[in-house]
Design a protein around this nucleic acid. Structure first.
Length: 277
DNA sequence: CTCCCGTCCTGTGGGC
DNA sequence: TGCCCACAGGACGGGA
């Protein structure tokens, strides 16, 4: 589950390897998952950016060449490695003779070369909310949106209120903010706490290179594991005592997602609406 | 419009 | 020990 911290860590490691390099060829055998990659052939990478969980490579403008960018989503298990492996799905050949190997055991990752800034085929990217660590993540706007939202966790996962939050960081942020994952229509106080929690969790996770889970599907491109899993308070900690109140962490399914929370300090406020099985 | 569900994929692990 | 099946889940499309 690469989420913002894992994707940002990946971007930072990749950046010096790819910027200023020319793409010689993008090699793969699944054109429906890695769309129009031939349009990147011969192009000079000018920058490697990120929006939410998407890595976006920009190219130097060139006479007669379309203004395109390469968009990469790591899916659940995607990541770049310095060497080919059993699950290498895409090989990005560069003009210095090196190559980047995109490994993706479960094949949920996607690549596409698209007209720059044109995300018609990627609605989630098109409707992406503000970066959680940027100035555009405005408190008043978040409070207002949250006051009308349905169940808060699925709402966060939609990427609309804020970019880059996935299953792990949603659970961790809600635990810090002491909000039940199924809570609807957040109060002003709840929304303020949640926004702050998201920023804290994301900043801390980015600082330690993201989370590497027990299945080891995520590692940084150099193979070094992330460090934030040690700071998980609820994710994958079902049955363990809550660090705040010692009640056992509970796992439910909400919006078809495994959802971890403390039933004692994340209490659902009246008004029904949200429920879980 | 919102909400819910199925689909894509395959490695892992829990159960028997 | 060995086998098998359920599970994990981000994005997205379709149906209610």
């Amino acid at each position: 589950m690469p989420e913002l911290p894992e994707v940002e860590t990946t971007r930072r490691k990749l950046e010096p390897l790819i910027t200023g390099r020319r793409v010689v060829r993008v090699e793969h055998d699944a054109p429906h998952k890695y769309r129009d990659t031939h349009l990147a052939h011969g192009r000079l990478v000018s920058a490697l950016g990120r929006r939410g969980k998407y890595i976006i490579a920009s190219f130097e403008p060139e006479e007669g060449e379309p203004d395109v960018e390469l968009v990469v989503h790591l899916g659940m298990t995607g990541g770049f490695r310095p060497e080919a492996g059993r699950h290498t799905r895409v090989t990005l050949h560069l003009d210095d003779g090196t190559a980047l190997f995109f490994q993706d055991a479960r094949r949920f990752g996607k690549w596409a070369v698209v007209p720059a800034g044109e995300y018609a085929s990627m609605p989630t990217l098109r409707l992406m909310g503000p970066e959680p660590l940027g100035d555009a993540f405005d408190e008043a706007a978040f409070v207002e949106l949250a006051s009308r939202a349905g169940a808060v966790k699925p709402w966060l996962l939609s990427q609309v209120p804020v970019a880059g939050v996935g299953n792990i960081y949603a659970d961790e942020s809600l635990w810090r903010a002491r909000i039940h994952p199924a809570q609807t229509r957040l109060t002003r106080e709840e929304a303020v706490r949640l926004r702050a929690a998201i920023r804290e969790v994301m900043a801390e996770a980015v600082a330690v290179g993201g989370s590497t889970l027990s299945d080891h599907t995520y590692a940084q491109p150099d193979g070094v594991p992330g460090g934030f899993q040690a700071s998980h308070h609820v994710y994958a900690r079902e049955g363990e005592p809550c660090a705040r109140c010692a009640a056992p962490v509970t796992k439910i399914v909400l919006g078809q997602r495994g959802t971890h929370f403390c039933p004692a300090c994340q209490v659902l406020r009246g008004d029904a609406a949200g429920r879980a099985s």
